[in-house]
Design a protein around this nucleic acid. Sequence first.
DNA 1: AAGGCTAAGTGATTTAGTCACTTCGTGACT
DNA 2: AGTCACGAAGTGACTAAATCACTTAGCCTT
Lengths: 231, 231
Amino acid sequence: MTYSTVGVTPSLSDRLTEAILGIIRDAGLGPGDAIPSARELAKRFELTTPTIREALRKLEATGAVEFRHGSGTYVGPTINNVVLANPHRPPITKESVLQLIGARLVIEPAVAREAAVSRQPENLERLEAAVTNALTPPGGPAFALNFHVELAAASGNPLVEELLASLLKVRVREQQQIRQLYDNRNRDHEEHRAIVDAVRAGDAAAAERLTREHLEHIQRAIEAADFPELP
Amino acid sequence: MTYSTVGVTPSLSDRLTEAILGIIRDAGLGPGDAIPSARELAKRFELTTPTIREALRKLEATGAVEFRHGSGTYVGPTINNVVLANPHRPPITKESVLQLIGARLVIEPAVAREAAVSRQPENLERLEAAVTNALTPPGGPAFALNFHVELAAASGNPLVEELLASLLKVRVREQQQIRQLYDNRNRDHEEHRAIVDAVRAGDAAAAERLTREHLEHIQRAIEAADFPELP
DNA sequence: AAGGCTAAGTGATTTAGTCACTTCGTGACT
DNA sequence: AGTCACGAAGTGACTAAATCACTTAGCCTT
């Protein structure tokens, strides 16, 4: 048996999450907007607050809502996501990091190719911004990662972007560590630069090849590095 | 501002989910195993059951645990996942389904190529089983989808498999509907067959091309179909 | 006008208890 | 001996009514 919950009446909690999402959508709320308070929802559904809170916690786990103590509950950033980074990720091992790079090696070259084919002006601009900002990160150390997400965005398919963003998000801490072990920002930047140029030129084959090589460089650096444990 | 929870002390609920996951991992529990009861956990953490339940609900939302009323709480199937299908997915539109196919068109050909390169005997066997079982599905209508997941598994990278499985899982209902509108099982099967043969032969280029064409066929069928709303 | 203080609103958690469901063993019946 | 009904124990599901902690905004003081 795979799932015991097949054809079974969904739990109250399940129905409640759906109902709350219904309220959000019917009211046309987007990320950042406030939703009714737990007490208000409790009244509306004729339930008690702990029950409401359970449902809200489920929504919180997937980023659909966000609690702000003393302030209220708000629509989260990933409410419209199709796929998510697991917030309860297993501990990090060298193997898991290599697995991540392996997956990216399968997917990202094809994504770069698609970006070179698509070549939408707006996306190219964002890509350009990502590659130039990389050397002077304004938003912290994780900002440089955005290049790869922007590359995915440049494919023109939001779902592909979402997929890459999720893939990179789960391993932010590893990526930061990789960056410490293998801090070759100049080469990184050069390679990013070359990829962007290929995309701009619409040279799909080059974009694909350069992305593959770029990831292979990172892969080799990780394989060579000894990997201390994280806290 | 993107996240208000940066550098802030994580909430009790957050720490609790981590602690519970710690218990699961320390005890070496896997999917299907029972975890301590909510009352037991409440005693252990010196908290009350609603608080514990909130944490468990968060874990439930990501498939890390599963409630079974009257029986207990068990480790869920996706506890070790890196990336997840959003259980609170937005409503379906024709556009969203086309977006999904678009993303698959970017990714899956590259995955098929990788499978043809990897060619591990065990994976080939599972792939074979998936393609032969497709015509006589023993596990319901969604079973035929497994071909594409198995193809991803054949790439040799579990994360790639996870990614594809998540991608297909969010749209199970759409896929079922597609299957109703475009029930061309014979052609489907033939095309699957051809892809498997290419993978078996180690012909990466053919595997890639055939997978792309297969998805393009589906894409065209969806574009042509008018898309009724779901309940 | 500026700044500190208070009060209302909200989330966070507690406490105590009831109801519903599952499991499994006991014991009666066949 | 085998089978079935039953019931007790354990568990999740939910209620009820509070209290504590935090944020915000408006008022009041200066």
